[in-house]
Design a binder for these strands. Structure first.
Lengths: 139, 139
DNA sequence: TATTGTTATACTCTATAACTATA
DNA sequence: TATAGTTATAGAGTATAACAATA
């Protein structure tokens, strides 16, 4: 059922594994500065753009809705998010970032060292090439 | 203390975020086929190459040594790994993959859909460019 | 009846601290 | 004393199943 892959693809895959590991380290460290876990920071980043029903957050995170309850609870406990009722459908609760939550999300995004150190090693032209290749991979 | 980043860098960072998310989905799904969690699969992949002291595994995973105990316990319970004594230093325990463990690790690696579908969208020349850019990012 | 969010439960991963057996 | 591994503990994320409120 499995298939061998060519050496170049294996090499790229290995590098992506390294990038993935590095990305998580940096992301979690940046989140920890604000006393947030990675999952909490990810949800806060989602809410910073727009309020979202709990169910939609679960879809974005690709996890079960029951898990979102706890994550939003912890954001709420830190005053970074709040739950709002939806008059149009009273079953729905909208999670929304507070002003402090939005400010934290912005700081978090701007402080991602990952964006600077590793990417700074590339010229602007090379970053453009990288963008195009990644975009086609992810498409 | 934070600094704005240029739009191109932000775009690349976003793409990397997408790649990271996709990578984890695929990796965890591939691991689940073998009744393994992501962490267990990662340790098994390490052991497939060479036996390692518990302490070294923790360093590679960048986690505390106490966590490795449980992960290796679960691999051992499935007959995929075993602990061996080190005669040279009897404090050390070497975790080693069993034959079944090595076979599982190989299947796991070859079954990584991530390597095929997204990377297949690129030509061999493009994969080479991607490898070089990622290698320079990662150093 | 179906859907939204929550609660209850159990498992894994994580860090911290204390313990053991070696060195 | 110091080091390797374990145990104990607590917090967080995860899936599953059952539940209340609402549609």
């Amino acid at each position: 059922m499995t298939r061998r892959m060519d050496p170049l693809t294996a090499e790229v895959l290995d590098l992506i594994g390294t990038v993935v590991a590095r990305y998580h380290q940096e992301y979690d460290a940046a989140a920890a500065v604000h006393h947030l876990t990675g999952a909490q920071a990810r949800v806060l980043a989602l809410l910073a753009t727009d309020p979202l029903p709990m169910r939609k957050i679960a879809e974005r995170l690709k996890c079960e809705p029951s898990n979102v309850t706890g994550i939003v609870d912890r954001l709420e406990a830190q005053g970074l998010a709040e739950r709002r009722n939806n008059p149009a459908d009273r079953r729905v609760k909208l999670a929304a970032a507070t002003d402090r939550g939005r400010a934290t999300a912005e700081q978090l995004r701007d402080s991602l060292e990952f964006a600077r150190e590793p990417l700074a090693a590339l010229s602007e032209g090379e970053r453009g090439v990288l963008r195009d290749l990644l975009a086609r991979m992810v498409r």
